[in-house]
Each structure stands twice: as structure tokens, then as C-alpha cells.
Simulated assay, not measured.
Amino acid sequence: MADLTQELWADKLKNDDNAVLIDVRTEEEFGEGYIPNAINMNIFKGQAFVYELEALDKSKNYYVYCRSGGRSGQACEIMNQMGFENAYNLMGGFSEWTGEKTI
């Protein structure tokens, strides 16, 4: 797992043809706004969240965020334990995101 600054995370994401964007916030938080093309996978769903992760392609690069960076950091750790090699946590999360948003 790598904790990346907003700028580095955005640059890597923009230039990555193998990227998947995951928002691990609740459905309510996601409904208030998100980064375009993000998939909502609520980390608070526990085992259901793990099942959703198991369905993902481990060869992809995953850019993960939450509100402030804590839950997404946990999600990246879980992903690493499951064999995902490229999971990138957005430091500061959506609350500090200055890039494009869908509201």
C-alpha cells in the first residue's frame, strides 16, 4: 500500500490506463458527491466488503479514497493482505480533494 498526496495520487490516476477508482465511504456519503468514475464499496459492510474485493481483478491498480484517508488506508491494507499489489490511498481523502467532483 502507498499513502499518496493529493497531487501524486491524481497524477498517477490520470496517467494510469489500468486504474480502478474505489470510494469506500457509505452510500449516503457517496450520494453527497464523489470523484468521477468511482465505484462505491462501503468498507463498513464488513464481510460483504471483503466479498466485493474478492470479485476484483488483482492485476489492476486501485486508487482508494474515503472522507479523510483513514478508512481508505484500512481498505488498502486489507487489499494488500488479499494479494492486491497496487492499492493507493488518497491522503486527506475526499474532504481535501481539489480535483474534479460529481455532485
Rank of each mutant, 00 (worst) to 15 (best):
Y63T: 09
L53H: 01
Q47E: 15
N15F: 04
Q6W: 01
G99R: 01
G31D: 07
F84V: 05
Q47V: 07
I43E: 01
W9P: 00
W9V: 06
R71G: 08
A10Y: 03
I22Q: 04
N15E: 09
E96T: 15
G46W: 12
P36L: 13
A2Y: 10
G73W: 02
N86E: 12
L13Y: 15
D11Y: 04
Y62S: 08
T98P: 00
V50F: 13
E77N: 03
T102D: 08
E28N: 12
G93R: 03
T98R: 13
N86A: 09
N15R: 14
L13D: 14
W9T: 00
A10L: 04
G92W: 04
I35N: 07
N40A: 11
K101W: 03
A55M: 15
E96F: 02
I35S: 10
W9N: 00
E52A: 13
G46C: 11
T98A: 11
F84P: 00
E54I: 02
A2W: 06
N61D: 05
W97F: 05
K45N: 12
E85G: 11
Q81C: 05
S72I: 12
Y51F: 14
M82N: 12
D16W: 03
N18E: 08
N86I: 02
A10C: 02
R71D: 09
N40M: 12
S59H: 07
E28D: 15
C66G: 04
L90I: 02
V24G: 01
A87P: 01
